[in-house]
């Protein structure tokens, strides 16, 4: 019987192939969150990303995790990823040191839109590690500070020790005329800042509703309440953007894990204009 078969032309699975890059340093932001600075090396040639996009970070033999890029988009050769140590991959990443090699593929997903913010006020509302995917847009805004009106950063954390980027928060406030308001869920007598949920900070700032663009990222519950607060303050939904999180395996729309209603967070998200996801936010276990 004729069993001879011809081989089809073989192409590789480009979008799923990882690229080795070097760890330059690890900075611990708090007890279980750290920022990895990566030297992108050869892979950095031609690597560009937009604020709000994410990478798939691979640990040899262990697995991959989707992590937002938290550094300045103007410096794509050296990338920061701020990572919460929770699972297998992130725990492995936490143990890696300067000179170790991990894999990167990306960048994936949508970004915080910047053009719509030109000439307008920007209100950034964040909670917990949600500040990390917003840091690139803050860098971008303050680089051309004069092109924007007020820049307000509202940030909530569990406790003063849990807050990310504390030094930078102060720097943004002092050197770049950013209105930074930070609150924590729990503080002791040494904490002179606000205590309470992040939405409570809105009462200390007056927003010019029609002239304000809002970027929101944090735990989903926090985002739900923040969106209500923005609504109460008259910010049109079309001027609000938020970034969502779901389980992801492929980041390119193949694996099905990150489906959020009719959307794939890896393709259409993670950053969405509020009107796109507003009806979905109220659907439990979507």
């Amino acid at each position: 019987m004729n069993r001879k078969t011809q081989a089809a032309e073989v192409e590789v699975l480009d979008p799923m192939t990882t690229h080795p890059v070097l760890i330059r340093k690890t900075i611990w932001e708090n007890d279980d969150t750290f920022t990895l600075t990566l030297d992108m090396g050869d892979y950095g040639q031609g690597f560009r990303f937009l604020p709000g996009q994410f990478n798939m970070v691979y640990v040899y033999g262990v697995g991959e995790a989707a992590v937002s890029i938290s550094s300045d988009p103007a410096k794509p050769a050296v990338l920061d990823h701020t990572i919460h140590r929770v699972g297998l991959v992130t725990t492995a990443l936490a143990q890696m040191k300067r000179g170790d090699v991990i894999g990167i593929r990306g960048p994936y997903g949508s970004s915080w839109p910047i053009d719509c913010a030109r000439g307008k006020d920007v209100c950034i509302a964040s909670g917990g590690i949600g500040l990390a995917p917003l840091r690139p847009i803050i860098y971008t805004l303050i680089k051309r500070r004069e092109e924007y009106g007020r820049i307000i950063v509202l940030y909530g954390g569990r406790s003063p020790l849990d807050l990310l980027y504390r030094v930078e928060l102060e720097k943004w406030a002092n050197d770049f005329n950013v209105e930074v308001l930070v609150t924590v869920d729990r503080g002791d007598s040494s904490w002179k800042g606000h205590i309470g949920v992040v939405t409570s900070l809105f009462q200390y700032i007056k927003l010019d509703a029609r002239e304000t663009i809002a970027y929101v990222c944090g735990p989903e519950v926090m985002m739900r309440y923040t969106v209500d607060e923005l609504d109460r303050r008259g910010i049109p939904q079309t001027q609000t953007y938020l970034s969502m999180e779901r389980n992801m395996k492929c980041a390119v729309g193949f694996c099905g894990h990150c489906q959020y209603g009719p959307t794939f967070i890896c393709k259409e998200g993670p950053v969405y204009p509020l009107p796109r996801v507003r009806p979905l936010l109220d659907r439990k276990e979507l």
Binding site: T5, Q6, A7, V10, L13, T18, D100, G103
Partner: peptide, 24 residues
């Protein structure tokens, strides 16, 4: 198999090519 990787020094090298050839 999406890819294979070999330890190389402190890092690793990625071999993205699938083994063998694909049938028609």
């Amino acid at each position: 198999r999406l890819f294979a990787a070999q330890k190389a020094g402190k890092g690793f090298e990625v071999d993205p090519a699938p083994t063998g050839t694909l049938p028609r």
